[in-house]
Amino acid sequence: MNIIICWVLIALLLLQPGIAHEGADVGIKLFMNALFPYLLPYLILTQWLLRLTNQGSSNPSKTALYLKAYGISALGGFPTGSATIAFMTKEQQLTLRESKFLLAICHAPSPLFMIGFVGYELLENASIGWRMLLLIHSVNLVTLGIFILFSKRPSETTSVKKEIKRASFPLIESMKGSIPTVLLVGTTVIFFTTISHVIAKTLLHFFHDLPTVLAVSLYAVLEMTSSLHIATQSFASSAYLPLWLMTILAIQGLSIHLQVAVLAKDADIPLVPYFLLRLIMIPVLPLLYWVIFL
């Protein structure tokens, strides 16, 4: 099945090179203007903070370790959360059981992305970006609290099985460690934006007028950032535009899920809890936003 899908996508790209080039150009502009400025500084700083707090020799309590993982992930946004959990797993600060649940919980957009891009640039109202951000983190923190409450209590500390090596230059190592993640994000955003653009234009050959909801849904399933941009243009006059954007933020798209999968597999972290929690969040977040703010 995957081979068939791959050949179909290759055929679409070959038959419509102009449209593919246009889609790639859109993806590059989205990444450079909407993601790169909001991703790179936070990614480097959070990786730096992670290495600085990894210098000590004492074993923190599990609760403190979980809160540290969530706090760093919350600052950086996705996929910084996945990179953080993968790093802590490789350093044996977290077990695989802990990692697979924290991977699902420590997953949220960064404050700068939500307030700057979604709130200020798209909605021209930073307070709406704050509302969305606080709602997402409120749900995540409740989930984290449930996880801590039901975690096994035999030992309150998480043992580190290997000796922690002190980083000679934590900032330099953070910059080097951030490069693969930035490249991964850029590649997936450009690829899925191109595919979305080509599929949408191909459908227009068969349907004279592609329904707006279908077009937005297509982009939402494949790439989040481009779908946020298109939804803002398509539903600019609708009072339910924030609800549309919250729904897209809950779906997130294959682009982000692939980023998480690559980072998680690098540390052999199981992905089942992550995908189960994402399926739960898709109806929960828009419903809560509608009940509380609309």
Results as ranks from 00 to 15, higher is better:
G177Y: 05
P283Q: 08
T46I: 13
T157A: 12
Q93F: 10
V118N: 03
I199R: 08
V216D: 03
L135E: 03
A236V: 05
Y38T: 11
I3L: 12
V182M: 09
T225D: 05
V26T: 15
A236C: 03
L12P: 03
E163I: 13
L279P: 01
L294Q: 07
K68D: 03
Y66W: 06
G177M: 04
A220V: 01
W130G: 04
K29C: 09
I85K: 09
T53R: 10
G129H: 00
F293K: 02
L288I: 07
K265Y: 02
L43T: 04
A250N: 06
F191Q: 03
K265E: 03
L144D: 02
R51L: 14
I3W: 11
L203R: 02
L9G: 03
A74W: 00
P286H: 09
L96N: 09
V198M: 07
K100Q: 14
F235H: 07
N54M: 11
Q252W: 02
N2H: 14
G18A: 01
L245V: 06
Y289S: 00
L9F: 13
A108C: 11
F147Y: 15
T80N: 13
T181D: 01
M1P: 09
F78M: 06
T247Q: 00
V291E: 05
K165Y: 13
D268H: 12
I195T: 10
P286S: 10
F206W: 15
S110H: 08
G129A: 02
V262G: 03
L102A: 06
E124Q: 14
H197G: 01
P242I: 07
T157Y: 15
I179F: 09
L103F: 04
L245E: 02
L65S: 12
R131T: 09
N2L: 14
F192N: 06
